[in-house]
């Protein structure tokens, strides 16, 4: 057992695969001697050298294209886009190439790549855009967002081994803010499974990334008032584990979905629609969504704090779900 931060656990996951599989390599900006943005690849250059840990020019589209091509010839690249805000610069490669190649070639080609990127409001306060739902919309991409160090490591391993393109979202607030004991047996988590982080009887709260921790905090507050909240960590946005959510909702008969991305068109919209289809007659109250308001993310701290959904927004939403 070792007590690891989220960032250290991510590095552990990559290190494990780099050690055991020479096909695995990492490319990105400032991932070498600087140790990665926010320490996201610390120690890897020292152990694996510049053949495996490859510094790139600021050429995101070429980086993702090159990852796809090297996967086509049997490699297992991890390509790092420093921040989620830069994903639009390589969108064609991800959405049209990586997502389509396997299907369009009738299975002749596997695109075993991981695109890792940092998102979310955090101590860094830079480039925090949360575009994850765009990728969940596109068939052929797997989309994961861990919320704990153990998941960070084991999902990274799973993402690297998966024969499909996996878009891996790392929330910046978790990076150095969350630590836990992580066991000594790195294993591939199974992609596409949600996790129940707290069992409860009255209401299901589904959330992602840093928002999971806010949901757990809200659950403790409400427990005092006698409201027993079940917290589901989505973990995977694609495939979406509707079964786990639906069976929770069948028990609680209420659902709140919360994420940091814009509420309009966010993954919460898909979840509430799918749950409404699956559990319409089990629901005691309309689903409630929590997400960012529909304007661009402002930069100054007070404006940003008002923009990013917080524990109070969650408390309000859960109480609303409990009111009917």
């Amino acid at each position: 057992m070792a007590r690891l931060s989220f960032a250290e656990a991510l590095v552990e996951g990559m290190r494990h695969e780099l050690r055991t599989d020479d096909r695995v390599f990492l490319m990105g900006q400032d991932i070498g001697k600087m140790g990665g943005v926010m320490g996201g690849s610390r120690g890897l250059i020292e152990e694996f050298g510049p053949r495996r840990i490859r510094e790139t020019p600021i050429s995101e589209s070429a980086m993702v294209g090159a990852a796809i091509g090297s996967a086509m010839v049997g490699k297992r690249p991890i390509v790092e886009i420093s921040f989620g805000e830069f994903l639009p610069t390589c969108m064609s490669q991800i959405v049209l190439q990586a997502a389509n190649l396997h299907y369009m070639t009738a299975g002749a080609i596997d695109v075993s790549i991981v695109v890792r990127t940092r998102i979310g409001d955090g101590p860094y306060r830079g480039h925090p855009q949360c575009y994850e739902s765009w990728f969940a919309h596109v068939p052929g991409l797997k989309v994961v967002m861990p919320s704990t160090p153990t998941d960070a490591r084991n999902l990274m391993i799973a993402a690297i081994r998966d024969p499909n393109p996996v878009i891996f979202f790392e929330h910046m607030w978790l990076y150095h803010g969350v630590r836990e004991e992580v066991d000594n047996s790195p294993t591939a988590a199974s992609l596409g499974k949600a996790a129940i982080r707290r069992a409860g009887r009255h209401v299901t709260v589904v959330s992602t990334g840093w928002m999971v921790h806010k949901a757990l905090e809200a659950a403790e507050t409400l427990a005092v008032e006698g409201i027993d909240v079940e917290v589901v960590d989505l973990v995977s946005l694609a495939p979406l584990d509707i079964d786990t959510i639906a069976s929770s909702v069948r028990r609680t008969s209420r659902i709140v979905v919360a994420h940091e991305a814009w509420k309009v068109g966010g993954i919460g919209a898909e979840i509430t629609a799918a749950i409404t289809e699956a559990c319409f007659f089990d629901l005691e109250a309309p689903p409630v969504r929590v997400g960012a308001p529909h304007h661009p993310l402002p930069m100054a701290k007070p404006l940003r704090d008002a923009f990013v959904p917080d524990v109070n927004d969650l408390l309000r939403a859960i109480r609303q779900a409990m009111a009917t």
Binding site: I58, F83, E85, F86, P88, T89, G126, H127, P296, P298, M299, A300, P302, L303
Partner: peptide, 24 residues
């Protein structure tokens, strides 16, 4: 406070930075 970077009135005739993606 919306963009921390560099924007002024359009009358100044300056292309502002409203996002962090280099090159655009």
């Amino acid at each position: 406070g919306r963009a921390l970077g560099f924007t002024g009135p359009a009358a100044m005739g300056i292309v502002p930075w409203v996002a962090g993606d280099l090159g655009t």
